[in-house]
Structure formats: structure tokens, C-alpha cells
Write a protein that binds this DNA or RNA. Structure first.
Lengths: 346, 346
DNA sequence: ATTGGCAGTCACAAGAGCCGAGTGCTAAAG
DNA sequence: CTTTAGCACTCGGCTCTTGTGACTGCCAAT
């Protein structure tokens, strides 16, 4: 059985290894921490931990390094969420408080999170599928061009240009705008798509094709943006920690740019409650747990944000296994909470 | 004096070094290229080139490597712009043709350019300062909230939410919208700012503060976006070529994320006609020429796009000194031209 | 359960030696 | 004046060896 002291030993191994990047030996443990026992005793505990595959020795005889499982144990049971410093809290306030619109909020958030954690930060745009239609606008740009603008209650704005055959009837455009808003306002996006499919049929033949054109543009705007986006910052941090990766960080950077892989991972972390240490609301996915995404050598910490149940979207950080989980989980949680509050005010 | 053959030697040194990453010696030159002279003669030429600081020997006795100055000579006088392959041209057509709006065009462009060159690609958003006002829209969101939307003729759309005290008068909002569009439509952004400063004064006291609020929001939208943005893709390529950098690529990645440094560099390259090889329209900034930006170990190739004189904005690639200039300059030029044509159609 | 002692293991650094690619120089030939 | 062949020399990089030091695992004693 793994004793309580053994777990303390695991904790300091993780902490010291994260701090120093060097495999930690029994002697350095008794030197740096007051366990009140000898190095030999620590060695016995370490043998136990190795038995449980929580730590491993890179070479036959040098200190121990946490395994994926060891980090997992640390995150779930041993990490104390270090509260942010006053300076950090103040940075959040000052930095995010000055935002002007959704794009700006997310851009600031991701940069802030990257700076707080010294890792790659990721923020998912609010899922349109959980948003509702707030307003639809049709703006005539020229004789035969209309810009359709689509606004959701999460503050997202999508615009698209529609070429129409023949001159635009301004009066009818105003009527159409009004009818669209009446029909769609407040609907979820799935419902809105259904309504739009049938919308043109409520108009006479002369108008039908024109309305159908507009409706299909709006439908595309909804559909095209169901696939959400990520904003990213701090890629340079990945390079800084490059030595923590056995291979190249090239595939990792590619995955980040590609987005699609990370979005799947985000989705899975939202669905999965395994990785979630209940009291913090921060989910972790560590090392080989990401193997199916080709990201077996990184850790991802995420938290939902945007609604009281955290269900709209996620944000988080990505970095090497060897990261400061205590600090980073605290930062992710704090930023997610702040962002939730900020968006809630709108 | 540097003979014509010496320059041929410089050309093959650059080409071979870029291809192989190994310092190139006199023997391998006569082997791989048919100069019709002996290795000793090549050595004499190389001594000349070294005299002129166009090449340098990393160690006392191994092959030669181009200096910054050597690359500059190559770019200005020796590089043949290899025309794109049919497949590449087709890729441009297919990839960019499917775009739906400005954001999408630029996102696609930057990814395409990154793939064509295998380097980091950068595209600057069209400078608002050279744009004109196409349309202003005011959308009531709720009892006391208005979204002001600002559209330029370069297709850029900026939106912002304005909180107003007291209920909104829809009829007046329509009137205001009409008057704003009459007053601003077609104006350059600087002029528009001037008009807005005085705009509220044309309304009676009851309306004045309301109009002033809207006007100041619009002014902010213009001002906030005068500072342009870059879109970037292919950061992973920088990691791939990491061995070409003596130090870490960390500061380079930081500069890319920071944007401000690169925007200054872009601005300088637009103003400067030094680095521009006249017949191509592609400007190059090589190695130490970027030292003031802390980017002394990279090359940047850019071209203007967006107007016949290429004056609206720039796009380009960034990579190690040791890059395929012939291919990359051709790609930058081709993409810039295609993009110009695409935007001109709108 | 804990401890001290001890032999054993292994990565890593430093040093020695060899190899080969490539140079500069010189003297002769075109 | 340019080109060529020959030759001695330099030096980076590879391999092999050796030495050192940090650990461990095990065992007998407490």
C-alpha cells in the first residue's frame, strides 16, 4: 500500500523536478525537505512509488522522474491550488477591464493567460450552437450587393456579402429585415436554421428567389461558424520549454495551428468528467491521455467559461508535462471565472 | 574586381548551401557544376569573393558560406525568379477562389503562402488610413444598447456596442443613420474623423449628447483600427528550420506574436526602395539589415498588394537567411498579384 | 519500520588520436 | 595575366577510453 508519506514524497518529487528539470534523488529530498527520516527510508518509499508506476528512473541509477500517472496523481490529490498574488489579480482586472468587444476580450484573455502561466494559452470562441439570435441586419452596399450581418447574444458578429440579380428594393429590404428579426429573434441556431429553410416560401413568386438568396446566405453564416475557432497566444513559450520534449515540438505547433485537433480535444475535455478535479472546475489531460491526438507529450489544462455552468466554451493552457500545475490551474480557474463574470455583464 | 565568373560561383555557393546546409568547397563546385575550370581556379575566385565579404569560411579550413552581403547580392543580381509550377498556380486559384469575406481571404492567403514557401507567412490587414467609408449602420440591440457597425470599401467591418442613457427613439435612429451615411459616405478616414468631431453640433440640445455618444464611438472605431493587424501562419516552419539559427528562435517567435515590431519593419520596407529589386516588386530585408528590430538572423520578403501601385498593405514571408529566395520571391509576388486582383474585383 | 553501510551501475565529461575535406601558396604552363 | 597541378597544413568532428560522481538496491542491525 502507498502510505501517506509516500505520497508526500511523490509531491516533492514532482515539485522539485518541475523546478529543476533534474531527476531527483533520495539524498536531495532529505536535504531540501524536513521529512525527519533518512535517505534510505525515502528510497524504500520511492521503490513503492516505482512499483505503482508513479515515478520512474530514466537510467539504472539516477534520480526519479514522475510518470504520466504520477503527474495525474499529483494533479488529482496533491496539488494545492496556489491562490494568485495580488499583483496577478490586479493584472487581470486592468488588462481585461479595458476590452471593447468580444474579439478584443478574447484576444486580451489569451495573452493574459499566456503571461500568467508562461505557456501556450488557448481560448475557444463561444459555441454558436449554444447561442441565440439577437439581431439580423441587411445593409445595401451597392445597386446589387447586400451585406448580411448576423449577431448573436454572445456578442459574436458575422457578416457576409451577397450579390443579388437586379436592383434592390429598399422598402422591401426594410420589410424583410423586420420579418426576419421577428421570425428569428431569440431562437437557438438550430431552430433558426429550420425557420430559414422554409422562410422564402412565405413570399410571393416575384420575391421568392431574392428571399431565398438571403436566407441561404444567413444559413451559411450559421453553419460556417458552428465550427468554432480558437485564439492562441504564447507559442514562443513552447520553444522556450523545448528541452522538455523528447522529439521535436514541430508536430505540436502544427496541431495548434491546425486547430481542428485541439478543438476535438477541447470537446472531449468538456464531455469527460474524468480529468476534472471536482472542487476546482479545471480539467487536466496529461501526456498519454492525449495520445490519440498525437499529443502524447503534452499536458492541457482547461476550464469552461461563459455561463454559470461553464457550458458555453473552454479556455486553457497547453505545455510540457513538466509544468507548474499548481500555479497554472489556479490561473486558468481565475481567468475563466473573471471572463465568465465579464461576459455575464453584457 | 569581381569577375562575371566569380558571381556565377557566388550563385552556386548560395544555391548549394541553401540546398545542403553544408559549407560548400571548391571541389564540390567543379563536381556539381560544369564551369570548365579546375578547382584551383574556383579557389582563386572564392578568395576574391571572400575579399569582398560576400562569403566567409566558418572554420579555417572548410567550405564557404554566404554572408548577409552575399545573400543580398544574390537576391539583387543573381536570383532567377523561378515561375510557379502549374500545380502551384492551380492551388492559388482553388484555394483563394472559395473565399467569402475579407477575413477569410486573408486567412486563406496566409496559409497558402506558408504552404508555398514552407516559411512563416505574414499578411497585413489593409490599412484603414487608405480606406474610405462605405457604410455606417446603427442596430438597436435592446432598450438602451446600440451596436454601431462601420464598413470600409476594403471590406473591413468593425462593430462596437454603445450603451446609451434612456430609451432609444427608433425613428430618430433611422434619421441619424441616414444623415451619417450622407455625411461620411466615400470619405477617407481622416476626413471622416474631422466630420464626426463636429457632427453632434448640428443637432439640438435634446439630441446632442446622444449623437455625441454615437459619434465618439465611431471615431474610436476608426482610431482603434488605424493600428493595423497581421495575420500569421506557419510558425511551425520556424521550428523546422531551427538549426539555421545560431541562438534560440524564441525572440523571433516573440516578435511575431508581438506584431508591433514586424509592423514597423513592414512599414519601413514599404517606404524603403533599397531592398526592392525593381523588376519583381518584391522587397527583401536580409540578416543584419533587420538588426535594429532584434531580428538580425532572419530574412523577410514582402510585396505590396491591394492596389495597382501596391500601396494599401503588404504581405510576405519570414525565415532563416538560408532560404530558397528564388522560389519564395516568386511565390510572394504571385500571391500578392492574385490577391490584388481578387480585392480589385470587389 | 527505519537506518547505516557498501558494492554496483551508468550517464556524462574530458582527453587522445585519427581521418578527411578543404584551404592557401607556389611554381609552372597556357 | 590567367589557369593549373601539387603539396603542406589546418581544424572540425568522430570514436574510443578513462575517470568521476550521483544514485540505487540490498542486507544486516537497531
Amino acid at each position: 500500500m502507498v502510505s501517506s508519506r509516500s505520497l508526500d514524497v511523490l509531491r516533492v518529487i514532482v515539485q522539485d523536478y518541475v523546478a529543476s528539470r533534474e531527476p531527483v534523488g533520495s539524498k536531495s529530498i532529505v536535504e531540501r525537505h524536513s521529512f525527519g527520516v533518512s535517505a534510505a527510508t525515502i528510497r524504500n518509499d520511492m521503490a513503492l512509488l516505482e512499483e505503482e508506476e508513479l515515478i520512474v528512473a530514466p537510467h539504472t541509477s539516477s534520480g526519479r522522474v514522475p510518470t504520466d500517472k504520477g503527474y495525474r496523481m499529483f494533479v488529482d490529490h496533491l496539488a494545492d491550488l496556489r491562490p494568485l498574488t495580488a499583483a496577478q489579480r490586479q493584472a487581470i482586472d486592468q488588462f481585461l477591464g479595458a476590452s471593447v468587444d468580444l474579439d478584443d476580450v478574447l484576444a486580451r484573455t489569451v495573452r493574459l493567460l499566456s503571461q500568467l502561466t508562461h505557456q501556450v494559452a488557448l481560448v475557444q470562441y463561444p459555441l454558436l450552437s449554444k447561442s441565440r439570435v439577437r439581431h439580423v441586419e441587411l445593409v445595401p452596399l451597392s445597386e446589387t450587393r447586400i451585406m448580411s450581418v448576423f449577431i448573436t447574444d454572445t456578442g459574436r458578429v458575422e457578416q457576409r456579402i451577397v450579390d443579388v440579380p437586379g436592383a434592390i428594393d429598399e422598402a422591401f429590404l426594410a420589410e424583410l429585415r423586420a420579418r426576419l428579426n421577428t421570425a428569428l429573434g431569440g431562437l437557438g441556431l438550430a431552430e433558426a436554421t429550420e425557420v430559414l429553410a422554409d422562410f422564402a416560401n412565405h413570399f410571393d413568386a416575384a420575391r421568392h428567389s431574392f428571399v431565398a438568396l438571403i436566407a441561404s446566405s444567413l444559413t451559411e453564416q450559421i453553419g460556417a461558424n458552428r465550427q468554432d475557432r480558437l485564439v492562441m497566444a504564447g507559442a514562443a513559450n513552447l520553444v522556450r520549454t523545448e528541452e522538455d520534449f523528447s522529439g521535436s515540438i514541430f508536430p505540436v505547433l502544427e496541431a495548434i495551428e491546425e486547430q481542428v485537433t485541439l478543438l476535438r480535444l477541447f470537446g472531449e475535455m468538456a464531455a469527460d468528467q474524468n480529468g476534472l478535479s471536482a472542487q476546482t472546475g479545471v480539467a487536466a489531460s496529461i501526456g498519454r491521455e492525449n495520445a490519440e491526438f498525437g499529443l502524447g507529450e503534452i499536458s492541457v489544462l482547461t476550464s469552461g467559461y461563459g455561463a454559470s455552468d461553464g457550458s458555453i466554451a473552454r479556455l486553457g493552457v497547453l505545455g510540457p508535462l513538466r509544468m507548474d500545475y499548481s500555479n497554472n490551474m489556479a490561473a486558468v480557474r481565475a481567468v475563466a471565472r473573471y471572463l465568465t463574470r465579464l461576459l455575464g455583464e453584457d
